[in-house]
C-alpha cells in the first residue's frame, strides 16, 4: 500500500517508510516548521551521507520492524512530497464536499486501515464521524497542489454508514461504497 501516492517523486530513504512513521512525521509537521532553519543544515548533511541510497518512491513498502541500529536513523522527505492531512477537506467522486479528516485508524502492525471523516450536516448539526477505507482515498492532488483529498465514493454511498464510536466495531466504507467491518484484533496481516 502506498502511503503517500507520490509516484515519480524521489524520496531519500534509509529504512522502508512504515505507515506509522510517516504519520508520526505528518503529525509533527507543525512543530518541524518552526525549526526549519536548523533542519536545513541537517538535511544537507544527511543528503550527502545518504546520496547513494536515493531510490524512487517505493510503491508498496512492506511494514517490517527496523533492524536494531545503534544510531537513530534520519529520514528526509522532500517538503513537497508529503503533507499533513488532519483537518483537510475530502471531496467525493462527484466533486461534492464530504467533510474533513479528523482521525486515522491503524492496526497493530501499524498499517493505516481507515480515515475518520466528519461527514455531512450543516453548522455542526447532523454531522457524524464515519470511517472510510484508506484505499479509497487519493492524496496525489492533496499533497502536490494543496487540493482536497479525493474519496472514491459519493455522499449517497456514505449516507448509510453508522457513526464511528471508540470501542464499537468500526464499519469502514470501501471504494465500492460497500460496508466492510474492520476487525482489529484479527488484523495482524496486511489486507489484500
Amino acid at each position: 500500500m502506498s502511503v503517500c501516492r507520490v509516484s515519480g517523486v524521489r524520496t531519500v530513504e534509509q529504512l522502508p517508510i512504515t505507515a506509522s512513521s510517516v504519520f508520526a512525521f505528518l503529525r509533527s509537521e507543525r512543530a518541524g516548521r518552526a525549526k526549519r532553519s536548523d533542519v536545513g543544515l541537517i538535511l544537507a548533511a544527511v543528503l550527502l551521507v545518504t546520496l547513494p541510497q536515493v531510490v524512487p518512491a517505493a510503491d508498496n513498502p512492506k511494514p517490517e520492524s527496523p533492524p536494531a541500529a545503534p544510531e537513530p536513523t534520519v529520514t528526509v522527505i522532500d517538503g513537497g512530497a508529503v503533507r499533513g492531512i488532519l483537518g483537510r477537506t475530502v471531496q467525493g467522486a462527484d466533486g461534492k464536499d464530504m467533510g474533513r479528516v479528523v482521525d486515522i485508524m491503524v492496526d497493530p502492525a501499524g498499517l493505516i486501515r481507515a480515515a475518520i471523516i466528519d461527514f455531512g450536516g450543516f453548522l455542526g448539526v447532523g454531522s457524524r464521524k464515519i470511517a472510510v477505507s484508506w484505499n479509497a482515498l487519493h492524496f496525489a492532488r492533496a499533497v502536490k497542489n494543496r487540493d482536497d483529498i479525493k474519496l472514491e465514493a459519493t455522499r449517497d454511498q456514505l449516507k448509510a454508514a453508522p457513526e464511528y464510536r471508540e470501542g464499537n466495531p468500526v464499519v469502514v466504507i470501501g471504494s465500492t461504497g460497500a460496508l466492510e467491518p474492520l476487525d482489529f484484533p484479527l488484523a495482524t496481516t496486511p489486507e489484500k
Binding site: G126, R155, D156
Partner: peptide, 24 residues
C-alpha cells in the same frame, strides 16, 4: 433538531446540508 439532522444525513446525503439549514 440534532436528531432530525442526523436522520436527514442518513436519508439524502446530498440534500441534507440544505435541508438542515432550512430547518434552522
Amino acid at each position: 433538531l440534532p436528531l432530525v439532522g442526523s436522520f436527514m444525513t442518513t436519508q439524502s446525503a446530498s440534500w441534507a446540508p440544505a435541508l438542515i439549514a432550512a430547518c434552522m
